[in-house]
């Protein structure tokens, strides 16, 4: 159990070795914290995170209106799930939100992150501004955009010359979901920028210096050095974005409440409305299970597609 110690310590370390010997003769109990130290945290987490995770699967086989006790309902919820047109529609909207927010956030976060990792002047001032959205709550951000885009007093009204009378952007079923994607991106781009900034700072300068000798320009450096060096960060950031989009909830709830009509009702909102305004908790649980499966599948796919294919070291050849 105790790892073997080098049997012949150098003379200089002999005194220390004796001390180590003495410590090793003490029992584990006297030297190391036991399982009891970790038990409260494990139990607490099990009770309020793991247990709900198990219960959501159990509840998906029950019928429950939020009061009284859940009643067993067999496969009922799952059969209904297969025939729910609104569910299919919200699934498509979720996928659209996922793809669109990835496509919008990644290039901007990557570009600004790489830029902010450099040594430009004014960088500190702009960086300080970039991270403000991260500090505001989702309802605050959603309400800010709701008033900013208000049909009568906000930006669309100022743009009446261009938009004509179609100033109710958030009330437009074709536009609302794109605005939701934009608002979510506005909130989360700073976070991914920080990831890319940290990673870009870790790219060895030697690579750039060597590439200059080979005659590479900045554009070429970006594609041949920066991007390949950042690929694990791109995977991490992508996973966080995909899972984030599958589970996103409060931003759209406050921004549009799923409307107009059901135009922005994505999967988690469908679950919320089913459970907490329709009081069909069993069915909502089945939708929740679907969300978990989808989120897990997305992150596994992202890892498979990009992470394991190229397992060689990032600093290979240095």
């Amino acid at each position: 159990m105790i790892p073997a110690i080098d049997p012949t310590p150098s003379p200089a370390r002999r005194a220390v070795g004796d001390r180590e010997e003495a410590v090793l003769q003490m029992s584990d109990h006297d030297r190391r914290p036991g399982a009891v130290w970790a038990l409260p945290a494990f139990l607490f987490f099990a009770a309020f995170a793991v247990l709900p995770m198990v219960l959501v699967l159990v509840l998906s086989f029950t019928s429950w209106n939020g009061l009284g006790d859940p009643q067993p309902a067999g496969m009922e919820n799952w059969q209904r799930l297969a025939k729910d047109d609104e569910l299919v529609a919200s699934l498509w909207r979720t996928l659209l939100v996922m793809v669109a927010s990835w496509a919008l956030q990644t290039p901007i976060a990557l570009g600004i992150g790489v830029w902010a990792a450099g040594k430009q002047r004014n960088r500190a001032v702009l960086s300080a501004l970039f991270f403000v959205p991260l500090l505001l709550s989702t309802p605050a951000i959603a309400l800010m955009w709701r008033t900013f885009l208000d049909a009568s007093f906000g930006l669309p009204n100022a743009l009446r010359g261009v938009l004509g009378d179609n100033t109710n952007l958030l009330g437009n079923p074709d536009l609302a979901i794109w605005i939701a994607v934009f608002v979510m991106s506005w909130q989360w781009i700073p976070f991914h920028t920080l990831l890319y900034q940290g990673a870009a700072r870790g790219v060895p300068v030697v690579l750039y210096e060597a590439s200059v000798i080979d005659g590479a320009g900045r554009w070429r450096q970006f594609w041949s050095i920066t991007l390949p060096q950042l690929r694990y960060t791109i995977v991490t950031s992508t996973i966080l974005m995909l899972v984030g989009s599958v589970t996103t909830f409060d931003a759209i709830l406050v921004l549009t409440e799923g409307g107009p009509g059901t135009a922005t009702r994505i999967l988690p909102l469908h679950m919320y409305f089913m459970g907490f305004t329709g009081y069909e908790m069993g069915y909502a649980s089945a939708v929740a299970v679907l969300i978990v499966v989808l989120g897990t599948a997305m992150s596994l796919a992202a890892v498979r597609l990009s992470g394991f294919r190229a397992m060689q070291s990032q600093s290979e050849g240095l």
């Binding site: 939020g66 589970t247 989120g295």
Partner: peptide, 24 residues
């Protein structure tokens, strides 16, 4: 083992467990 449970727990989305949490 407990630590592994916590690491797996990182993947639990809070949004997906609101119904059982309400129950608990």
């Amino acid at each position: 083992r407990g630590f592994s449970m916590m690491l797996l727990g990182l993947a639990i989305p809070a949004q997906a467990v609101i119904v059982p949490l309400y129950l608990i």
